[in-house]
Design a protein around this nucleic acid. Sequence first.
DNA 1: GGTGGGTATGTTTACGTAAACATTCGGCTA
DNA 2: TAGCCGAATGTTTACGTAAACATACCCACC
Lengths: 339, 339
Amino acid sequence: MGGKTDLRLTMDDIAAAAGVSQMTVSRVMRGTGQTSDEVRKRVESAARSLGYVPNRLATALRDETAPLIAVVLPTLGNRVFSEVLNGVSSTLTDSGLQPVFGVTEYSAEHEEELVRDLLSWRPRGIVLPGLEHSDATRAAVRASGVRVVEVMDIDGDPISVAIGLSQIAAGRSTALHMLSKGYRRFGYIGSQGGRDLRAVKRLDGFRSAIREAGAQIVSERIVAEPSSMTVGRNETANLLSERNAPEAIYYSNDDLAAGGIMHCLSEGIAIPTQVALAGFNGLAFLEALPVRLTTVETLRLQMGVEAALHLLGHRDDPDEISNKKVVDLGFRLIEGETC
Amino acid sequence: MGGKTDLRLTMDDIAAAAGVSQMTVSRVMRGTGQTSDEVRKRVESAARSLGYVPNRLATALRDETAPLIAVVLPTLGNRVFSEVLNGVSSTLTDSGLQPVFGVTEYSAEHEEELVRDLLSWRPRGIVLPGLEHSDATRAAVRASGVRVVEVMDIDGDPISVAIGLSQIAAGRSTALHMLSKGYRRFGYIGSQGGRDLRAVKRLDGFRSAIREAGAQIVSERIVAEPSSMTVGRNETANLLSERNAPEAIYYSNDDLAAGGIMHCLSEGIAIPTQVALAGFNGLAFLEALPVRLTTVETLRLQMGVEAALHLLGHRDDPDEISNKKVVDLGFRLIEGETC
DNA sequence: GGTGGGTATGTTTACGTAAACATTCGGCTA
DNA sequence: TAGCCGAATGTTTACGTAAACATACCCACC
């Protein structure tokens, strides 16, 4: 309360006010070492009344590492990534670590620069999206010596630890399900102009299963925009108005697929008899839709949680040295009413 | 490429490798002062080949401020806040500043602690949600001397700059619109157990307008959970099954309202004849729904953008001293098909 | 051929904290 | 009563960078 709260208050100021040395203040603030009750009280009240806030920059410089976890995200425009971030963030609460993040907008060059920027904070660990990174990015991360976790995908060679699911298998799995329902002529609707490499992998998996079954993908529509229900709705309309329209549509994610459902509801198109649909992610809002979408459930929040736990050191494996590890959180095909 | 990329490489190491002093390395890295082409090349190649990454902690300590913008969010579970964060983040790109954030989960105590933690990084600025904060929080922010922007709400006394809209007016406005359509018996569905203070303000505004018109709110259902379409769907079902059900329902946000639409679609309840609905936020996905929701559009992304611009110093007002300022971004009632 | 004025580079120092080491002092033991 | 122990506190130093202040050197000019 009150106090001449100067902008830049240091331990020296508190020390002067309490009539002790800076070091004693440091000891009191951290509760380490020996301090008499008498002095402790004086220091604490001085700190409180002056409104002292420790300077973490100094501590971090001294410690040669900052209590930060760096998080790289492709975008904040897709709730999938805010869920991952949420998992990291909530796991970090009360750990004394704070998240710093940046967004690449699906650009490898941005990622490279961003990773450098984030590493310059000397964070405790870094979370990267997916397994595809430029050589420079990988080198910078390796050289920094900070713990790394790559999330979302496990199809590839991780820098150190990968936590996620096989995107290729998810795509295959969806294809096999749809094939088992008897569909033979497929459409695909994607977004982000193919820059979402996980979506590309799913499509690869999907395609190969379709091809192996002797069925075919009659049309692939990949728009440049970010995904949204509106895009999904519009592209579904476009796809279905093509001559030679497909019997079933695979969407790169649930937002697009939900847009497809909305189109069908509005136009009175029967699902799945006139057209079958499948999405990806298993977003929570799907269960509120009038038609339950067939989709693949993924554990975004848990990926963030597991990544943070690993970085916090609660997931140390015995062989610390060659700590290449893949944590497959798996996926689950959820059969709804759309195929 | 290559190089004995040690974990903790400093300018001294580069200096030794290039045969110059640490200060010359510093000058080359920042492109300031005088340096000969010859030396510059030597230093740059040494830095590159060794994989030097500057230590921002040292720079920040020296500068007495870190190139960070602190962002406090109530939750990451509601896309409204990731949109604000997105606005801040994208505006910060290429500014040399990075966002650090934390989540309060709507708790004032968490906020207090979080703000202290964030301020201990000596950020350039801080973004807070809403205008309601504990005295200690306000004091800590004031004392720190960092720029502050409070976003989302303008109904109250800002610490410094508030950017948002009048939540009370938004609630009133919705009420007036619904009253103009002839509805007299209202229901309200909210979430977060009343901890979302902006939602409380909207409800206050809504209530007062209803009362002034002599109409009434026959039922208010506020659940403890976070908002979601599913909650909205379930609560709508509950509300409509009450004896004496309302003619019109006001939801604390679009997610809940969209759930209401889904319930009606599934149950064949005619909108707005059997029940009218109104939401809040104007989320993008609404336009993909089969029934267009009447809602109030708010500019979340822009709030983040404007907040960041202000903190970057691109929004300096002449009177820097008593820089209390309110930026009303307004809202717009969007009349859909639900009332 | 000395002098003035750049240009290029080097040296010292401070930023705030905390480990490591030093000091003081009261009491207890032999 | 000398000697020692340990608790409480103080002093020095390093962390990596960049401003401020030297210094060295080359060239133009008179």
